[in-house]
Deep mutational scan, measured.
Amino acid sequence: DEVRLHVNGHTIEFRGIDEEIFKILEEAAKRGADEEELRRLAEKLLR
């Protein structure tokens, strides 16, 4: 299960996240989070 999030012209792939987590990451990206911040956030949410 892989999703792709487009951030500042880059595509970031995440594996094993559900739609709810994806929406949180998408919102963070809209607020200016970079790839590293998004990955840290995803790790926290998946715990």
Rank of each mutant, 00 (worst) to 15 (best):
residue 25 L to R: 00
residue 20 E to S: 12
residue 40 R to P: 00
residue 41 L to A: 01
residue 29 A to N: 04
residue 19 E to N: 11
residue 13 E to L: 14
residue 30 K to F: 14
residue 31 R to M: 12
residue 36 E to S: 13
residue 44 K to R: 10
residue 2 E to W: 14
residue 34 D to E: 11
residue 43 E to I: 15
residue 27 E to R: 11
residue 18 D to Y: 03
residue 44 K to T: 10
residue 1 D to I: 13
residue 31 R to P: 00
residue 21 I to E: 05
residue 36 E to C: 08
residue 18 D to V: 05
residue 11 T to R: 03
residue 46 L to R: 12
residue 35 E to V: 14
residue 15 R to M: 11
residue 16 G to M: 02
residue 41 L to Q: 02
residue 14 F to W: 03
residue 16 G to K: 02
residue 25 L to D: 00
residue 45 L to G: 01
residue 8 N to G: 07
residue 18 D to T: 14
residue 7 V to F: 06
residue 2 E to S: 13
residue 26 E to I: 13
residue 10 H to Q: 11
residue 35 E to K: 05
residue 36 E to D: 12
residue 21 I to F: 06
residue 25 L to N: 00
residue 17 I to D: 03
residue 28 A to F: 14
residue 28 A to I: 06
residue 17 I to R: 02
residue 26 E to T: 11
residue 11 T to H: 07
residue 31 R to I: 07
residue 23 K to G: 07
residue 34 D to W: 06
residue 6 H to Y: 04
residue 27 E to H: 12
residue 39 R to N: 05
residue 24 I to K: 08
residue 44 K to C: 10
residue 10 H to P: 01
residue 45 L to E: 02
residue 23 K to E: 06
residue 34 D to C: 05
residue 27 E to K: 10
residue 37 E to V: 10
residue 2 E to M: 13
residue 44 K to H: 12
residue 5 L to S: 01
residue 1 D to W: 15
residue 32 G to Y: 03
residue 20 E to L: 11
residue 45 L to P: 01
residue 42 A to D: 00
residue 47 R to L: 10
residue 16 G to R: 02
residue 11 T to L: 07
residue 36 E to R: 13
residue 18 D to W: 05
residue 41 L to G: 00
residue 22 F to W: 06
residue 33 A to W: 10
residue 45 L to S: 03
residue 18 D to C: 07
residue 45 L to W: 08
residue 47 R to W: 13
residue 17 I to W: 03
residue 45 L to K: 02
residue 8 N to I: 03
residue 27 E to L: 14
residue 43 E to D: 08
residue 20 E to N: 11
residue 31 R to F: 14
residue 42 A to H: 07
residue 1 D to C: 11
residue 36 E to P: 13
residue 41 L to K: 01
residue 28 A to L: 09
residue 4 R to D: 02
residue 20 E to R: 14
residue 42 A to P: 00
residue 2 E to C: 14
residue 27 E to Y: 15
residue 7 V to Y: 04
residue 4 R to C: 04
residue 41 L to M: 12
residue 27 E to I: 10
residue 3 V to K: 15
residue 4 R to A: 07
residue 37 E to T: 14
residue 46 L to Q: 08
residue 19 E to P: 13
residue 22 F to E: 02
residue 2 E to P: 13
residue 9 G to N: 04
residue 9 G to Y: 00
residue 26 E to R: 13
residue 42 A to E: 02
residue 15 R to G: 07
residue 1 D to M: 14
residue 19 E to M: 14
residue 38 L to I: 13
residue 41 L to C: 05
residue 39 R to Y: 15
residue 42 A to S: 05
residue 41 L to R: 02
residue 25 L to E: 00
residue 31 R to G: 09
residue 15 R to F: 13
residue 6 H to V: 15
residue 23 K to M: 08
residue 32 G to E: 01
residue 44 K to Y: 15
residue 4 R to P: 04
residue 33 A to T: 06
residue 11 T to G: 03
residue 8 N to S: 04
residue 43 E to A: 15
residue 16 G to D: 08
residue 4 R to K: 11
residue 20 E to C: 10
residue 6 H to T: 14
residue 26 E to A: 11
residue 47 R to V: 09
residue 46 L to V: 10
residue 41 L to S: 00
residue 39 R to Q: 05
residue 23 K to Y: 09
residue 43 E to M: 15
residue 3 V to A: 07
residue 37 E to G: 09
residue 20 E to G: 11
residue 47 R to M: 12
residue 14 F to D: 01
residue 45 L to Y: 10
residue 13 E to M: 12
residue 8 N to D: 07
residue 38 L to K: 00
residue 37 E to P: 01
residue 43 E to V: 14
residue 46 L to T: 10
residue 13 E to S: 10
residue 29 A to H: 06
residue 24 I to C: 05
residue 46 L to C: 06
residue 4 R to Y: 15
residue 37 E to K: 09
residue 5 L to F: 03
residue 31 R to Y: 13
residue 30 K to T: 08
residue 6 H to M: 08
residue 25 L to I: 06
residue 12 I to A: 01
residue 19 E to Q: 13
residue 8 N to A: 05
residue 6 H to C: 11
residue 46 L to F: 08
residue 10 H to F: 09
residue 23 K to T: 06
residue 47 R to E: 09
residue 43 E to W: 15
residue 10 H to D: 05
residue 45 L to R: 02
residue 7 V to W: 05
residue 17 I to L: 08
residue 2 E to L: 15
residue 6 H to S: 11
residue 4 R to I: 14
residue 20 E to M: 13
residue 7 V to P: 02
residue 29 A to G: 05
residue 5 L to N: 02
residue 22 F to G: 05
residue 47 R to I: 10
residue 41 L to V: 05
residue 27 E to M: 14
residue 3 V to M: 15
residue 46 L to A: 07
residue 26 E to N: 10
residue 29 A to D: 00
residue 13 E to N: 05
residue 39 R to A: 03
residue 10 H to S: 09
residue 32 G to V: 03
residue 41 L to W: 06
residue 3 V to Y: 15
residue 6 H to K: 10
residue 36 E to W: 15
residue 1 D to K: 12
residue 25 L to V: 04
residue 12 I to W: 01
residue 3 V to P: 06
residue 30 K to H: 09
residue 37 E to F: 14
residue 32 G to P: 00
residue 14 F to R: 00
residue 16 G to C: 07
residue 28 A to R: 07
residue 12 I to P: 01
residue 12 I to F: 03
residue 43 E to S: 14
residue 13 E to D: 06
residue 12 I to C: 04
residue 2 E to G: 10
residue 6 H to W: 02
residue 29 A to E: 02
residue 3 V to Q: 15
residue 37 E to A: 09
residue 41 L to P: 00
residue 45 L to C: 09
residue 28 A to S: 08
residue 46 L to M: 13
residue 23 K to L: 08
residue 39 R to W: 14
residue 2 E to R: 11
residue 18 D to Q: 06
residue 43 E to K: 14
residue 6 H to A: 06
residue 39 R to E: 02
residue 22 F to Y: 11
residue 43 E to Q: 15
residue 24 I to Y: 09
residue 18 D to K: 06
residue 4 R to S: 11
residue 15 R to H: 13
residue 26 E to S: 12
residue 31 R to T: 10
residue 7 V to G: 02
residue 28 A to K: 05
residue 42 A to W: 10
residue 21 I to P: 00
residue 12 I to M: 04
residue 3 V to L: 15
residue 10 H to Y: 04
residue 32 G to F: 04
residue 6 H to L: 09
residue 29 A to I: 10
residue 1 D to G: 13
residue 45 L to M: 07
residue 44 K to E: 08
residue 44 K to V: 11
residue 17 I to Y: 03
residue 35 E to M: 09
residue 26 E to M: 11
residue 22 F to M: 06
residue 14 F to S: 01
residue 34 D to V: 09
residue 37 E to C: 11
residue 24 I to N: 03
residue 5 L to G: 01
residue 2 E to F: 15
residue 14 F to N: 01
residue 17 I to E: 03
residue 20 E to I: 13
residue 3 V to S: 07
residue 22 F to H: 04
residue 13 E to T: 14
residue 10 H to L: 11
residue 15 R to V: 14
residue 16 G to Q: 05
residue 24 I to M: 08
residue 9 G to C: 04
residue 14 F to E: 01
residue 18 D to F: 03
residue 38 L to Y: 01
residue 18 D to S: 14
residue 15 R to P: 12
residue 5 L to C: 05
residue 22 F to P: 00
residue 32 G to Q: 01
residue 10 H to N: 08
residue 5 L to E: 02
residue 12 I to T: 01
residue 24 I to Q: 08
residue 38 L to W: 03
residue 47 R to F: 14
residue 28 A to P: 00
residue 9 G to K: 02
residue 38 L to H: 00
residue 10 H to K: 14
residue 46 L to D: 02
